[in-house]
């Protein structure tokens, strides 16, 4: 079993994780009949969002370098393979949350309002949950916000506990009355182990 980590940048942000898998042939390194059923994605990033931390867990008998050889020439130029790592079969790849960097033009002049937005009792967003549009309070899914010089970083839930980062940022911009275009980049993913948040990269080297 291997974990494949890749980055999506530039035009690559417009590729869904399923498209990346299909184009790269990750789904067929083991043969065409192994399609999809042997794969697990950890919090795949939405289309339109840059990512430095995309992970696929692939059940295969192939060695790391064999998987690497099979896919590295088939990646679009905007998708970068970071590594292929062999892992134990009971590895937990389902992360709880991810860190994103958010930037937009008038960020510097809005820091106060941003703080205000995140410190409210409720953070309501317009989310699309299983095809149904609804208002969602994601206050308890926003774990950490840190305001930096050029933008802020935010840690929000992913998967079943999703903080819907794109909708969250849209809602923030409405709140602070900004019409700027924004850029979001996923930088890391975390999972919970022994009551602590562990970076997924680090966890892959630990014993369960």
């Amino acid at each position: 079993m291997v974990v494949i980590k890749y980055k999506k940048k530039d035009e690559g942000i417009f590729f869904s994780h399923l498209n990346v898998i299909r184009i790269s042939g990750i789904d067929v390194v083991d043969g065409p009949h192994a399609r999809k059923k042997k794969m697990l994605f950890s919090g795949p990033t939405s289309v339109g969002v840059e990512s430095e931390a995309e992970y696929v867990l692939l059940t295969t008998d192939l060695e790391e370098h064999e998987v690497e050889n099979a896919i590295e020439n088939n990646l679009p130029k905007w998708i970068e393979l970071v590594y292929v790592k062999e892992v134990d079969k009971d590895i937990n790849l389902l992360c709880d949350c991810a860190e994103y960097k958010v930037e937009f033009d008038d960020y510097k002049s809005c820091k106060g309002r941003i703080r205000e937005f995140f410190s409210r009792d409720k953070i309501e967003i317009d989310a699309n949950v299983h095809g149904v549009k609804q208002k969602l309070d994601v206050k308890d899914r926003v774990y950490h916000v840190k305001l930096g010089d050029e933008g802020f970083s935010i840690v929000v839930g992913i998967g079943n506990n999703s903080g819907h980062v794109v909708e969250l940022v849209k809602s923030l911009l409405v709140y602070i009355k900004s019409r700027s275009e924004f850029e979001i980049k996923k930088t890391r993913q975390f999972l919970r182990r022994d009551g602590k948040w562990v970076d997924l990269d680090a966890s892959l080297t630990m014993r369960p």
């Binding site: 035009e11 417009f14 869904s16 339109g48 679009p76 905007w78 275009e181």
Partner: peptide
């Protein structure tokens, strides 16, 4: 880029295929 973030299936419009 900003348009592509708003449309369905933006990969249709970017080219650069293998």
């Amino acid at each position: 880029k900003s348009i592509l973030k708003r449309v369905q299936r933006p990969a249709r419009y970017v080219g650069g295929e293998i």
